[in-house]
Amino acid sequence: KFGRVHERAEGPAKILAIGTATPFHWVDQSSYPDYYFRVTNSDHLVDLKEKFRRICNRTMISKRHMFLTEEILQKNPNLCSHNEPSFDVRQDILVSEIPKLGKEAVLMAIDEWAQPKSKITHLVFCTRSGVDMPGADYQLIKLLGLSPSVQRVMMYQQGCFAGGTMLRLAKDLAENNKGARVLVVCAESSAIGFRGPSEDHPDNLIAQALFGDGAAALIIGSDPKMGLERPIFEIVTTAQTFVPNGDCHLALHLREMGLTFHCTKDVPPTIAKNVESCLIKAFEPLGISDWNSIFWILHPGGNAIVDQVESTLGLEPNKLQATRNILREYGNLSSACVLFILDEIRKKSGREGLKTSGDGLDLGVLLSFGPGLTIETVVLR
C-alpha cells in the first residue's frame, strides 16, 4: 500500500561536471621552513628547523595554497603556538571561509554543467574544518541561492578518505532518486591544524609540511539529458573497508589547540600492503587483474605512500603521474585531493585527444585512504 515514493533511475550514476578552487595566497615549499619557523617564533630550535627542512624536501611538493597569511597569523598569535588554546579563533575563521571556498568550486562546476542551478536536488558536503550547526551545507545553500528544499547531508571530521566516500553516497542518491542531481562538495583548510613546532611531537612537522587548502565540487546524476549534459565518468562500483587496528597508525583529534595529527612510519607500507586486496575485490568480477590496464586516481597521502603503492603493485611510472602532479602543485588537500586528481586526469586526456576521459582507457580506480586506515575503492568508467 505504501510502496516506494521515489522512482529509481534507469542507469548508473555519472559525473557530469567538476570544479575546483583554492585560496589566492600560496607558499613556496622550498622556502617554507624559514617562513614557518619565523612566523611561529621558533628560529631558536635550530636542529628541529633543519629536520623540518629535510621533511619538506622529501615531500616532492612545490607549492601549497593556504588561507592563513602572515597578517592573519600576526593578529592571532595563539595559532602560532604549539599548545595555546586557539580553537575559537580557528572556528571564527573557518565557519565562514569553508563555505565560501566551496562556493567557488561549485560555481566552476555549474559553469561546466551549463544547467540551471535550480535542477540541483541534493547536496553532500564534506570538511574536517569549521564544525558548526547549522553547518557548512546550510551556509553554502544560502551563498548559492539554492532552494531550501535541496536535500542535504553534512559530513564533518572524515579525513583524507572522504573523497571516495562522497562518490559512494552520491551514487546511491542519484541511482535511487530518478532525476536527482547531486552536488558533491569537499572543502578543506590546513588552518584547522596549523600550529608551531615542538621537539616532543615530530608528527606535527609532517602535517605542517604536507597539507594545503582547496575545494572540489562535482555534479552527479543518472540518465543524463542527451544534448544537454556531457558525462565525464561513470561510477561503476564503490566499497569501503578499514585495516584492523589501523587507528594506531593514523589518527587526528580535535583539541583546544586545533586538530592534532598522529602518524607513524608504518602508514605507507601498511596501505601499500592492503591496497591489492581492495583492487581484487573490485575488479575480479570485471575480469581485470592487470593493474597497468586501468587508469589511476590515488590519494597522495605523501610521497612515500605513492612510491610504495607503485612499487608493491608493479605500476608503470606514468600510472600515478596525475597523483604526483597534484601533490606537487597543491600538497595533500585531504578529502578534496582525489577529486582534484580526477579533474587533472580528464583534462590531460582532453588535451592529448585521447579516446576516453581516463587516459584513453575504459576502466579505472579511485583509491582514497585516511584516519583509521580507512580505504575507499571506486571503480570508474
Rank of each mutant, 00 (worst) to 15 (best):
K1F: 15
F2C: 14
V5A: 12
V5I: 11
H6K: 10
H6C: 03
E7P: 04
R8T: 04
R8I: 03
R8V: 12
E10N: 11
G11P: 01
P12M: 06
A13G: 02
K14G: 05
L16D: 02
L16W: 03
L16M: 05
I18T: 02
I18V: 03
G19L: 02
G19P: 06
T20S: 05
T20M: 00
A21G: 04
T22W: 07
F24P: 15
F24G: 10
F24S: 00
W26Q: 01
V27S: 07
D28W: 03
D28L: 00
Q29K: 13
Q29T: 09
Q29F: 15
S30Y: 00
S31C: 15
Y32K: 11
Y32M: 13
P33R: 08
V39F: 07
S42E: 01
H44Y: 07
H44P: 00
L45A: 04
D47K: 00
K49Y: 00
F52T: 01
F52V: 03
I55F: 15
I55C: 13
N57V: 03
R58D: 11
T59Q: 09
T59E: 04
M60P: 02
I61Y: 00
I61K: 15
I61A: 08
R64W: 01
H65G: 07
H65C: 11
E70A: 06
E70K: 02
E70V: 08
E71G: 07
E71C: 04
I72M: 08
L73C: 09
L73K: 09
L73P: 12
L73Y: 04
K75L: 02
N76S: 09
S81E: 09
E84L: 00
E84R: 10
P85K: 10
D88N: 03
D88L: 08
D88G: 10
D88V: 07
V89G: 10
V89L: 07
R90T: 06
Q91G: 10
Q91E: 07
I93V: 09
I93H: 10
L94R: 14
L94W: 13
V95W: 12
S96C: 05
E97M: 07
I98R: 04
K100C: 14
K100R: 06
K100I: 02
L101H: 09
L101E: 01
K103N: 13
V106L: 10
L107S: 07
I110E: 02
D111W: 05
D111Q: 11
E112F: 06
E112L: 05
W113D: 02
A114M: 06
K117G: 02
K117E: 05
S118H: 02
S118V: 00
K119V: 09
I120S: 07
I120K: 00
T121Q: 02
F125G: 04
F125A: 05
C126G: 09
T127E: 10
T127R: 11
G130V: 07
G130P: 10
G130Y: 06
V131K: 11
M133V: 09
P134T: 11
G135V: 08
A136L: 14
A136P: 09
D137T: 01
Y138D: 13
L140Y: 00
L143Q: 13
L143K: 07
L143I: 14
L144S: 08
L146E: 04
S147R: 09
R230T: 06
P231G: 06
F233V: 01
F233K: 03
F233Q: 02
E234W: 11
E234V: 12
E234P: 00
I235Y: 07
I235A: 06
I235M: 04
T238S: 06
T238P: 05
A239T: 09
T241Q: 02
T241H: 14
F242M: 13
F242D: 13
V243W: 09
V243M: 04
P244K: 09
P244D: 13
P244Q: 04
N245D: 14
D247R: 10
H249I: 04
H249Q: 05
H249D: 04
L250P: 00
L250T: 15
A251R: 08
L252K: 15
H253I: 11
H253W: 12
H253G: 11
L254H: 14
R255Y: 06
R255S: 12
E256N: 12
L259E: 15
T260I: 09
T264Y: 13
T264L: 14
T264P: 14
K265R: 11
K265D: 11
K265S: 05
K265C: 02
K265T: 08
D266R: 08
D266M: 10
D266V: 07
V267R: 02
P268M: 01
P268V: 03
P268K: 02
P269Q: 11
P269I: 04
I271W: 12
K273P: 15
K273W: 09
V275E: 02
E276W: 04
S277C: 09
S277E: 13
C278W: 04
C278I: 12
I280A: 10
K281W: 03
K281V: 05
K281H: 03
K281G: 10
A282R: 15
A282M: 00
A282Q: 02
F283A: 02
E284W: 04
P285K: 03
I288N: 00
I288T: 09
I288R: 05
D290A: 04
D290H: 11
D290R: 04
W291A: 09
N292W: 06
S293K: 03
I294A: 09
I294M: 06
I294G: 09
I294S: 08
W296V: 10
W296D: 10
W296S: 08
G302S: 14
G302P: 06
N303G: 14
N303K: 10
I305V: 10
I305C: 11
V306I: 01
Q308E: 14
Q308F: 01
Q308K: 04
Q308W: 13
T312I: 12
L313R: 02
L313F: 12
P317T: 10
P317A: 08
K319S: 00
L320P: 00
Q321D: 15
A322P: 15
T323H: 01
T323M: 14
R324Y: 05
I326E: 02
L327S: 10
R328A: 10
R328Q: 11
E329C: 08
E329K: 12
Y330H: 07
Y330W: 02
Y330P: 13
G331C: 15
N332V: 10
N332E: 07
L333R: 06
A336I: 00
C337M: 14
L339N: 14
F340M: 14
L342P: 01
D343L: 00
D343F: 01
E344N: 01
R346W: 01
K347F: 00
K348N: 12
R351G: 08
L354K: 14
K355E: 01
K355V: 04
T356V: 04
T356W: 06
S357P: 05
S357D: 06
S357Y: 05
D359I: 01
L361G: 09
D362M: 01
L363W: 08
G364C: 00
G364E: 02
G364N: 00
G364S: 03
V365N: 14
L366T: 03
L367D: 15
S368Q: 11
F369A: 14
F369M: 15
G370Q: 14
P371E: 14
P371Y: 01
P371K: 09
P371I: 00
P371D: 02
I375R: 15
I375M: 13
I375T: 14
I375A: 14
I375N: 15
E376R: 01
T377E: 13
V379D: 15
L380Y: 03
L380W: 03
R381I: 00
